[in-house]
Simulated scan of single mutants.
Amino acid sequence: MNKRISFVPALALGMVVLSVPTLATAVTTIDVVDEARLVGGAAVMSVEIICDLGANSFLAGTTGTIIQRTRFNVTIESGSLGQTAINCNGTPQIFQIAVSSSRFRPGPATAQASTIVCNNSPFTCESAQDSKEIQLVE
C-alpha cells in the first residue's frame, strides 16, 4: 500500500515564514534624560545617544521639543544642535539641547527628541527618536 504525502501545506507554511519581514534591531538610540534645567529663559534638556557607525560619524540633525501644560497655557518650543561630530563606538554620549522659552515653569512636561546620525565612509545614516514625561527644575 502506497501512501501519498502532500507537501503543499508544508511548502505553503515555509513560504509564509520566509515572506515575513525580519525586524532589524535599531543600532542608533536616543534617550531623553528625566530632568531639564531651567536656565535664563530656556530649558536645557539632555539626550543620551548610542550609535556604532564608526569614528567618522556626525549628528546630521538632532532636535528636542518640550511641551508644558500650565493652568492657562500650553507651551511648545523646540531647539536643535548644529551638525556635531560624534564617535559612534557603541558607548553612550550626552548632548544638551537648549529649548528657549520664558514661559517654562518648574514642574512636569513632555520631552521629545530625534536624531539622524551619519557616517561618511561608507555613507550611511540612521535615525532614532524618544518621547517621555520629564521634570523641569531650577
Rank of each mutant, 00 (worst) to 15 (best):
I94Q: 06
C88N: 02
A109R: 03
V74D: 10
R69P: 02
I94S: 03
P106Y: 08
T70K: 07
P106Q: 00
S80G: 15
Q83S: 10
T91S: 11
N87H: 10
G79D: 01
I76W: 10
R105N: 08
E77G: 11
Q83N: 11
F104T: 06
P108T: 12
S80C: 07
N89I: 04
S78R: 13
P106G: 04
I67L: 14
S101A: 08
S102G: 07
T84E: 04
A111V: 12
N87R: 07
A85T: 06
I86F: 03
Q83M: 11
S78A: 12
E77Q: 15
R105L: 04
F72T: 15
A111M: 06
R71F: 00
T70D: 10
A111C: 10
I76V: 15
N87T: 13
P108D: 06
T70Q: 11
R103F: 13
N87C: 04
T75E: 11
A85R: 09
T70E: 12
V99S: 04
Q83A: 08
A111G: 05
F95I: 09
I97F: 00
Q83T: 09
T91Q: 12
P106N: 03
S78W: 08
V74S: 13
G107M: 00
V74L: 08
T110M: 10
Q96V: 01
A109K: 10
G82R: 07
P92Q: 09
S100V: 09
I76E: 09
S100K: 06
I76M: 10
S80R: 14
G82Y: 05
N73C: 09
S80I: 07
I76K: 14
S80A: 13
T84I: 03
S100A: 13
P108A: 14
F95P: 00
L81R: 01
V99Q: 05
F95L: 05
S102V: 13
I86V: 05
S100G: 08
S80L: 07
I67P: 13
G90S: 02
G90F: 01
Q83R: 14
A98Y: 04
P92Y: 06
R103G: 11
F72Q: 15
T110C: 06
S101R: 13
N73W: 11
A85I: 08
E77A: 15
I86Y: 03
R71V: 05
E77K: 15
Q96T: 03
S100Q: 12
N89P: 00
V74E: 14
S100W: 11
S102T: 14
T75C: 07
V74I: 15
Q96P: 04
E77S: 15
T91M: 10
I86Q: 02
N89H: 04
T110N: 10
Q93S: 09
E77W: 14
N87G: 07
P108N: 12
S102W: 09
G90D: 03
S101V: 05
S102L: 10
F95R: 00
R103V: 12
I76Q: 13
N89L: 05
